[in-house]
Structures are given as C-alpha cells and as structure tokens.
C-alpha cells in the first residue's frame, strides 16, 4: 500500500519518469550515438562494428529488454503526468502569460510522442528488416553500411530523420535538467551550469544523430 502510494505520488511519478528516461539516455542513446559515429569511418569499420554487436547478443538482448521496460514506464508515467496536469490547470484564463518556461518544456508531450513515432519507423527501416550481405575479411557479414546509404538516397527520408532529431534535441534539453532537479539537486533558475550543460548535450547529440543521414545523402550524390 505504502509503495503504491509512493510510486503514484506526484514526486514518485516524476522520479520514475526521470529514472526511465536516464536509463534510455545512458544505456541506449549514448552507445547508439557512438556506433553511428563509426559510420563516418567507412563501410569496413561500420560493418565490423555491427558484426561485433551481434556477437554480444546476450548483453544486447538484456539492454533491449531494459529498453522495453523503460519505454513502457516512461510513456505510461509521461501520459499520466501530462493528463493530470491538464486537469489541474484551469484553462479558462484569457490572458495568462508565461515568462520562464522554455519552448522545450512546453513541448515535452509533443516531442515525446514524436520520438515514439520515430522509434517505430526507425525499427521498421533498419532493425526489423532483411539485411543485404557483403564480404568483410573473407567472412560474410550484414552490409548495414550499404543499407544505410540506400535508405538515405531518398530526400524524404533524410528530411524525416533530421526533423525528428530536432524533437530528440528539444526533449533532451528540458529532460536532463529537469531530471536532475527531480533527484533533488538544485538547478537554479538563472545562470545554471546544469541547464547550460543540458542544452549543450541536447544540441550535440541531436546534431550528431542528424548529420548521419545528411552525410549519407551527400555521399550518394
């Protein structure tokens, strides 16, 4: 009873939201970005990275399960918090103005929803798909490099990926600083280094992810 009350209290919900978000950030987003950077070093390195990932299957499956749990918790709590907040806020105000809240903070449910759509599309595009095969050091390996180049020959795909990375950046820029404050570390309103760092990480990660489809597109021209 006590645990249920704690988990579904306003602070409990936010702690779960922050924790599930941080798990995805640390165990999925950062390694994924690291892998993507290897794309810039050409087909051999990128394909061999993908091949090595396959040899780590137990760990990969473990992380995948953790991701599924995190996404479920994050979405459930996110939607719950957003709906509760909508009910608690009296919308009849005609003139209410806001001074402090950022665009990113305002758009959290929207950018969150966009990221979910993106994940599904991204899984259909690459993960859940028969992969072409190529030769690497005398072995037969999946040609993920070629698959990626092939995908991003279409400008529509490139625009889609870049646009949705803007959502990732917006989401992260509020999420990181907000999670830190939720854990009880004081993030000041003005001149906060944590806020600045949060924005820099968001911009850095979103642009690193976004640059891959752009480079792939230019590569095939």
């Amino acid at each position: 009873m006590d645990i249920k009350q704690t988990v579904f209290s306003s602070i409990g919900q936010k702690l779960l939201l922050a924790t599930s978000g941080l798990i995805m950030f640390l165990l999925f987003l950062i390694p994924h970005m690291g892998g993507n950077i290897l794309f810039l070093f050409g087909p051999d390195i990128f394909n061999s990275y993908a091949e090595h990932l396959h040899q780590l299957v137990p760990i990969v499956i473990g992380i995948e399960v953790l991701m599924m749990v995190s996404i479920s918790v994050h979405m459930f709590m996110g939607i719950r918090v957003a709906l509760e907040n909508r009910t608690a806020h009296d919308k009849r105000l005609s003139q209410k103005s806001t001074k402090e809240r950022s665009l990113a903070a305002r758009l959290m449910p929207v950018s969150g929803g966009m990221i979910f759509i993106f994940i599904i599309k991204h899984l259909l595009d690459f993960t859940l798909r028969a992969k072409p095969v190529t030769e690497l050091h005398g072995h037969e390996v999946n040609d993920v490099y070629g698959m990626l180049l092939d995908k991003f020959t279409q400008p529509g795909h490139v625009i889609f990926y870049v646009l949705f990375m803007v959502a990732v950046g917006l989401h992260l820029s509020h999420a990181l600083q907000s999670a830190v404050q939720t854990y009880g570390v004081y993030v000041p309103r003005k001149g906060s280094r944590i806020k600045l760092l949060s924005k820099l990480i968001a911009i850095g990660m979103a642009s690193t992810f976004a640059i891959i489809p752009i480079i792939a597109f230019l590569h095939t021209r």
Binding site: A88, R101, S102, A105, M108, H174, T182, R189
Partner: peptide, 9 residues
Amino acid sequence: FGNCSNEYE
C-alpha cells in the same frame, strides 16, 4: 494540484 515539471514559472 498538478505535477511539477520544473518550468520555474
């Protein structure tokens, strides 16, 4: 009351 989303208004 709603849930705090650390927007500092």
